[in-house]
């Protein structure tokens, strides 16, 4: 298998224009096999457009792409045979029950035997917790139940690539947790490409992230790289006492990029940005103590994806 074959999705200069609006501009994209790949961006960034282009539901204005090495325009039916897709605004046939919907979906992939299709349908109903509602018409379903059914129908063919457009939308916290569990379980079998606005989820399960803004890619990196690249490590320190001496000594150190100070009652709070994490781990705490301050709290500040996302999107504007 060549290096290029390791990418499930590849796009080069992929663009889409609707009338005067350029929804997607020259997107270059490579999604490695068996990864959970998060696709982020504010509303109208071009995420859903990209997904629809990959599935052949839209035609590119220019550029192109391939999924499993197959062309997204010419071979879209073959591509869809290996993909499970949960659309953002998901609509079923309302007269069908969830069991009928899954049976109908499964039969786009499998001719039979019916007993095995029934087993798969039952497995999917159980996976998303809809077994007790399997024979009720969908028209009575809540938003969360529809979303669960959407996930089940996307997974019913055990796809090699699962594309989920806002999978946790409409779900309560338990439902969200279940979706993340499903994604984590599937990751060893399939590649998952998903859009979401819930950045906590992205940080907890994703391997790689791409961020779009106004139809343009503004970042793509493995999640750790993205988090590390957000201006370097920051140490959070809360202390009491006279901090002037400590401030003078620490701010003069070559590996200290800056100190942001604030006062909370009798406590002083610093956020110390450093360029050398190892040096900071070795020396920062002892320097503070030797300067005579009483340290109440000390630790490496966790970098949140949300901060990076906002920083990147606002930076691009």
């Amino acid at each position: 298998m060549s290096k290029m074959d390791d990418f499930v999705i590849q796009a080069k200069g992929l663009s889409k224009t609707f009338g005067e609006v350029q929804a997607l501009k020259n997107l270059d994209l490579q999604v490695p096999d068996k990864t959970i790949f998060a696709f982020l961006g504010p509303n109208g960034a071009g995420k859903t457009t990209t997904i629809k282009l990959l599935l052949g539901l839209l035609r590119p204005t220019s550029g192109g792409g391939a999924v499993f090495g197959k062309d997204i325009v010419r071979d879209s039916v073959d591509i869809r045979a290996k993909v499970g897709y949960l659309p953002q605004d998901f609509r079923f046939y309302e007269h069908m029950t969830s069991r009928q919907t899954l049976d109908y979906t499964a039969k786009f992939f499998f001719k039979g035997p019916q007993s095995e299709i029934d087993k798969r349908v039952n497995e999917m109903l159980e996976l998303v917790g809809l077994t007790d509602k399997a024979d009720r018409p969908i028209k009575g379903f809540s938003g969360g139940e529809r979303q669960r059914l959407g996930i089940a129908q996307a997974e019913v063919n055990y796809p090699d690539l699962l594309i989920l457009d806002e999978p946790a939308a409409n779900l309560d916290p338990m439902g969200r947790r279940d979706v993340l569990d499903v994604m984590t379980r599937i990751r060893k079998y399939a590649t998952i490409f998903y859009c979401t606005h819930i950045l906590d989820d992205v940080q907890s399960v994703s391997d790689e992230v791409i961020i779009l803004n106004k139809g343009e890619k503004i970042a793509q990196a493995p999640i750790e790289e993205l988090l590390e690249g957000a201006g370097g490590p920051v140490y959070s320190v809360t202390m009491r006492g006279d901090v002037e001496d400590a401030y003078a000594r620490i701010s003069a150190l070559p590996w200290v990029a800056g100190i942001q100070a604030s006062q909370r009652g009798d406590q002083t709070h610093w956020e110390v940005s450093v360029t050398d994490k190892a040096a900071a781990e070795d020396q920062l705490m002892s320097l503070l103590v030797s300067s005579g301050v009483k340290v109440a709290d000390f630790g490496l500040k966790a970098v949140e994806l949300e901060d990076i996302f906002i920083q990147l999107v606002e930076g691009a504007e």
Partner: peptide, 22 residues
């Protein structure tokens, strides 16, 4: 890229060309 374990028990849809899914 391997297909999921589990689909081998099925007879896959074999329609080709414009009839795919019909």
């Amino acid at each position: 890229m391997s297909t999921y374990v589990g689909n081998e028990v099925f007879d896959m849809v074999s329609e080709r060309g414009w009839r795919r899914g019909f």
